[in-house]
Computed example of a mutant assay.
Amino acid sequence: MPVRVIGVAVLGCVLAACGNSVSGQPVAARGPVTTAKPDSGLAKLLPNASAFPSNYPAITLPADAAGQAAHDLDGVLPGSLVEPSACTPPTPGAGPAISVGTDDETRSTLTVELVRTDQPLSTLRDQLQRCGTMQVSHGGTTATVTTELDPPPPLDADDTLALRRTVKSESGAGGTTRRMQSLLGQIGDVRINVTYMTFGDGKADAESLDSLFTTTVSKVRKG
């Protein structure tokens, strides 16, 4: 298995602990260290590698790497110090199942994450509206994550959500900046998250993101 691709998939949180903030006095709290149970049925709903753009050769991550990549997308590693604590992402009921494609030339990734949850997508939307920025500390590294909501994509799902997230870490010489653009949807108890991630000021590959999200929603809808 190409370890190089897996390494890029989880690179964000290796270089930068992640997070989001709300107005008012922040209260520090340790993020939960629990992880969701594996769900083999979710992997069957992931898009095939051929569904990814040709410049993003893709693989399905094994369970341990998938768990790491999921925290990377949420922006909070287990055991992180989150301020405010109310912005800590909820733990899904089962999963994740993740496929990731990597463009080595632009140092960017397209990631598809599927999890099972008993919470509607509106619960996450409400949390993100309160958590435009938060501070997250992990392993001596502090990061500030800013999240902005975009108009949701009009697709055949129970609910959809779009967001842009910037993670600015103090680690390394001058720190690092990681940018994500995500499209989320929910069909029944399956939460879909398709994310484009890059470093620096690179422009998001919106066309590839939209296409992969549409393909994934369709596959989950068909079951």
Rank of each mutant, 00 (worst) to 15 (best):
G185M: 04
L124R: 13
L212Q: 07
N48E: 13
V115K: 05
K44L: 15
L114P: 02
T142I: 14
S85E: 08
Q119G: 06
T123P: 01
R191I: 09
Q127I: 12
N193E: 14
D74W: 11
P62K: 07
R178W: 15
K44M: 12
V3Q: 12
V136Q: 11
A58F: 06
V5F: 06
L11H: 00
P90C: 09
V194E: 10
S21N: 01
P38K: 08
L121W: 02
Q119A: 11
V33P: 13
D201Q: 14
H71Q: 06
M1Y: 00
L77D: 15
T117G: 05
T176F: 15
T216E: 05
V76H: 05
A63S: 11
G200K: 08
S99F: 03
T214E: 14
G79Q: 07
P92T: 03
T88R: 00
G132D: 11
F199S: 11
A204S: 13
A162N: 01
S23V: 09
L155I: 02
D126K: 13
E170R: 14
A16S: 15
V136W: 01
Q68C: 00
D39A: 10
S218R: 14
V112E: 03
C87Q: 00
K219F: 09
V5T: 09
T198M: 13
L11V: 00
P152W: 04
I187C: 03
L209G: 10
A28V: 15
A69Y: 10
L11D: 02
V14E: 00
P78M: 08
S99Y: 06
A36H: 04
P90I: 07
A9N: 06
T166G: 06
L149F: 03
V190F: 01
A28F: 13
T176S: 15
A49R: 05
V33H: 11
M134S: 07
T166H: 09
S40I: 14
Y196W: 14
G185A: 13
L46G: 04
V115Q: 05
R164V: 10
T144M: 08
T216P: 03
T141Q: 12
D159M: 04
V33I: 14
F52T: 11
G101C: 07
T34S: 13
T102V: 15
Y56C: 08
P152F: 03
M180C: 08
M197T: 14
C131R: 01
L11R: 00
T109D: 12
E113P: 04
